[in-house]
């Protein structure tokens, strides 16, 4: 029983990290069809924001806010200077964001060096959940993940901004004729996507090593989540949960390498069997 609870909590917190790192990507990829290979570097920038604020003796919350703000600014700048030119050919975004990811990594390295930086855990220790001790900080992350995805969904569903975003995602040309300024909507979406990535970076920083290349380790799994989730935001939670469950349980009962292959197979199957696949050509 205890083991079941522990495994469940483990799956939840693993899913939380996956969802956090993927939700921003699901905006830029799902809604804008931009393959953003620099998503991982936005995450890295967020992690460094929290490192730098901590170095200045500021609290963890300030670091989180700083990460979000830096991510927002960076995302907006990227959209204005680069992504904006690519909507007519989303495939070009691969080259652009690939180049951008290298540039960002190298700039971080020039500014902060290659050393591992460390962010102290703001909530050390464990909390008892149904009699099983579980790291408090990871419980907090799970809450954050759900809250962030729900907030993004709520904005998309219930606000006029969300309506405009969905309209542009469905048919940018048509929305333009209806008076929705798609460039401004895209700016907001991309900046938000980057802000979410940076926030995720600050959130995972206490769990991992902070160094210029850290984003690479997260971006692949984030793409897997988005592949499983399809073009919409809501399934991100489900996809993250599914992938985390497969990954953790395979790891636990067999071994981590099979787990890595298992989630790749899951992603592959998801593209194959999803009934109303988000990626199909409409005919």
């Amino acid at each position: 029983m205890d083991q079941t609870i522990a495994l469940t909590l483990g799956v939840l917190s693993s899913a939380a990290v996956l969802a956090l790192t993927a939700v921003g990507l699901s905006l830029s990829f799902g809604l804008m069809r931009i393959i953003n290979l620099a998503h991982g570097e936005f995450l890295t920038v967020g992690a460094y924001s929290s490192v730098v604020t901590a170095d200045h003796g500021l609290s963890w919350g300030v670091g989180l806010a700083a990460a979000a703000a830096v991510g927002l600014g960076m995302g907006a700048l990227t959209e204005l200077l680069l992504i904006r030119r690519l909507y007519r050919s989303p495939e070009l975004s691969i080259l652009a964001t690939f180049g951008l990811s290298i540039v960002v990594r190298q700039l971080i390295q020039l500014a902060y060096g290659k050393d591992y930086r460390t962010v102290a855990n703001p909530l050390p220790g464990a909390t008892q959940v149904l009699g099983v001790p579980f790291p408090t900080y990871q419980l907090l992350l799970t809450g954050f993940a759900v809250a962030i995805v729900v907030a993004v969904l709520a904005v998309l569903r219930f606000t006029s901004l969300g309506l405009r975003v969905r309209a542009v995602a469905d048919d940018a040309a048509l929305s333009e004729t209806l008076g929705v300024p798609s460039t401004r909507v895209n700016l907001v979406v991309f900046a938000t996507s980057a802000a979410l990535a940076a926030t995720a970076g600050a959130l995972v920083a206490p769990l991992t090593n902070v160094q210029p290349d850290m984003g690479l380790d997260y971006v692949f799994t984030a793409f897997l989540v988005v592949i499983v989730a399809g073009r919409r935001v809501a399934p991100v939670l489900v996809a993250a949960l599914g992938l985390a469950a497969v990954q953790n349980l395979t790891t636990f009962w067999t071994d981590p390498l099979l787990a890595r292959l298992a989630i790749l197979v899951l992603a592959f199957l998801a593209v194959q069997v999803r009934p109303s696949a988000g990626f199909r050509v409409a005919t």
């Binding site: 989303p90 495939e91 592949i227 992603a267 592959f268 593209v271 194959q272 199909r280």
Partner: peptide, 14 residues
Amino acid sequence: RRLDAVGFALVTFV
């Protein structure tokens, strides 16, 4: 599966 270019690209990514 009649995937579009980006969908197919993701299959090849995996």
